[in-house]
Amino acid sequence: MRRHTARTTVGLCAAALLAAVMGTASAAPPGAQAVKQQPAASVLVDCFWHPDVRPADFILACGDGNSRLVSLHWSQWLQDAATAEGVNVVNDCEPYCAAGRFHPYPVIVRLDHPQPWKKHPELRHYTRMTLVYTDARPDGYKQVVSYPLWN
C-alpha cells in the first residue's frame, strides 16, 4: 500500500507541475516574444576616458582644468539626451591662468547626439554638450555655447 501511495503522490505532483507549466505557456498569446530590455542610457566620457552617468562634476578644459561644471543636478538622463542644472566655474586667467581666479556662472547643461563610443562600441556616448548661461557669463562667451565631446 505504501508503494502505491508513494507512486500515486509522485504521479500527481508530476501531473500538477506539467499542468502548471502548460497553463503558463498557453496563457501567452501565440508568437509572443519576451519583452526586450531597454537599451542602457548613454554615457558621458570624461577626460580620463571613463564613462559616467549623472556625474556631479565634469571637467570641460581637460588640458588645464580652467573650466569645469560643478554641482550638477540631473533632471533627465535618457538614451538620446540628458539635462542638468549646475555651475560652470571658469578661470579668468588674469594676469595669467596660474594666478587667475575662478568665477561661478549658473548654467543649464544639455547632452545629446549619442553615438557608439570608439573605445567601447557597445556603449553609446553623448557627442555634444550645450551650455545655456542663465545669468552672467564669462567674457567673450555667448549665452548658448555648444561643444563637441571627444570620442
Rank of each mutant, 00 (worst) to 15 (best):
S42Y: 01
P114V: 06
S71F: 09
N91K: 00
L123A: 08
N91C: 04
R54H: 06
A20N: 08
D57W: 05
A34Q: 11
A40V: 08
V35H: 06
V87K: 01
L17Y: 05
D112G: 13
G31Y: 00
V107A: 07
P116Y: 00
A84Q: 03
V109K: 00
G31S: 04
R128M: 06
N66L: 09
S75T: 15
K118E: 13
R7V: 12
L17F: 13
L12F: 06
A6Q: 13
V145G: 05
E122L: 08
V70L: 13
A81N: 13
L149Q: 02
F48A: 14
R54C: 05
P30R: 15
R128P: 01
V145C: 06
Y96G: 08
L149N: 00
V53Y: 06
P39V: 10
W74S: 02
S26Y: 12
N91F: 03
P148S: 06
V109C: 04
V45H: 03
V35M: 08
A61D: 15
S71C: 08
A99H: 11
M1K: 10
L111G: 06
A25Q: 14
D139T: 12
H120M: 14
H73P: 02
R110E: 11
D92H: 01
F102N: 04
A82K: 03
D57P: 03
R68W: 01
P106S: 09
S67T: 13
A40Q: 12
L123K: 09
Q33E: 15
A25F: 13
A14E: 04
Q79E: 10
Q33A: 13
G11Y: 01
A28H: 13
T5N: 13
T24C: 14
L12W: 02
A19M: 14
S67A: 15
G65I: 00
L44F: 02
A19D: 07
D135S: 12
F58W: 05
Q37I: 14
L17K: 02
V132F: 10
L78S: 14
P114N: 07
D52W: 07
C62A: 09
A82I: 04
V87C: 03
V45S: 04
V35K: 12
L123F: 10
A25D: 11
H113W: 07
R110P: 01
C93R: 05
R110I: 07
A15D: 00
L72D: 02
T134R: 03
M129E: 06
Q38W: 07
R7E: 14
W49D: 15
L131N: 03
D57L: 02
L18I: 13
A61R: 15
T8Q: 10
D112E: 15
L69S: 00
L72W: 03
G11P: 03
A99V: 06
I59F: 10
A28S: 14
A27Q: 08
D112T: 11
H73G: 10
M1I: 10
L72H: 00
S71D: 15
I108D: 08
D135W: 07
T134V: 05
A19E: 05
R124P: 03
R2D: 11
H125G: 12
A14M: 08
T83C: 07
Y96A: 12
